[in-house]
């Protein structure tokens, strides 16, 4: 339809000679006190020679190499190799090293979804997350809504992600409040018996390792 045909009842009352409003640039958002403080601390760290800008950039680039694909590789291997899974459940750092993945010094614990238990991870206090294994957390993981709702109405939050857990399965919420980080090992989807590691890896999503969803089914892969 032509531009003039549409219904103007939605407050679209500007003159047609004016341009539509622009999306604001990043700089147009208010600069908060904490942003100023973070910037000031970063500048002081460089100025005092504690960390150079090159070192800072190298660390950011290193963190950018951390992504869900690393965790997905780990999970797919646990589906194929029960002994490897046993090692993951007791020592994620050592098991990851077998795959050439260095998860650093913050301990990560793997928690396994079974027929009887579905696990989901939250950090009610802030945004603790197994970054070295699956990358930076999504914004929603840090939101107040996710942090407050997951601990007290986990099944409703899971429903919001399209995940329905039957009532005969325990939903277990893990609140990552201290020194450990948690990664969920989702269950291997049915109908993947003859799949190789590469194909299985594609079924393991970031959300399934947080526990808000299951691994992808073969039909949706």
């Amino acid at each position: 339809m032509s531009h003039d045909d549409h219904d103007h009842s939605h407050g679209h009352d500007h003159s047609h000679d004016e341009p539509h409003p622009y999306q604001p640039d990043i700089e147009d958002a208010p600069f908060t006190e904490r942003m100023v403080m973070a910037q000031a601390v970063a500048e002081l760290i460089v100025e005092k020679g504690i960390v150079s800008t090159d070192e800072m950039r190298a660390q950011i680039e290193f963190m950018d190499t951390r992504e869900p694909a690393l965790g997905a590789k780990l999970v797919a291997r646990t589906w194929l190799d029960p002994e490897f899974k046993a090692r993951v459940l007791t020592d994620v750092k050592a098991a990851s090293a077998e795959l050439g993945i260095d998860i650093g010094d913050i301990p990560i614990q793997a928690i396994e979804n079974t027929e009887d238990v579905h696990n989901v991870v939250v950090c009610t206090l802030c945004s603790c997350y197994p970054r070295m294994l699956i990358g930076l957390p999504p914004d929603w993981y840090k939101s107040r809504a996710y942090r407050s709702r997951t601990i007290k109405e986990p099944r409703k939050v899971l429903e919001d992600f399209g995940t329905t857990i039957p009532d005969n399965v325990e939903v277990r919420v893990h609140d990552s409040t201290a020194d450990l980080r948690y990664v969920v090992l989702p269950a291997r989807p049915a109908g993947t018996d003859d799949w190789n590691e590469e194909r299985l890896t594609d079924l393991v999503t970031r959300d399934s390792m947080i526990g808000v969803s299951l691994a992808k089914s073969p039909e949706t892969a």
Binding site: I151, K152, R155, N168, D175
Partner: peptide, 25 residues
């Protein structure tokens, strides 16, 4: 430390078997 959801939230609506696990010093 594991807690029953229903013990933490008296009006919890999910099954009685639902739990939470929290790291506590």
């Amino acid at each position: 430390v594991k807690f029953n959801q229903a013990d933490v939230w008296p009006n919890y609506e999910g099954p009685a078997k639902d739990t939470m696990v929290i790291d506590i010093y």
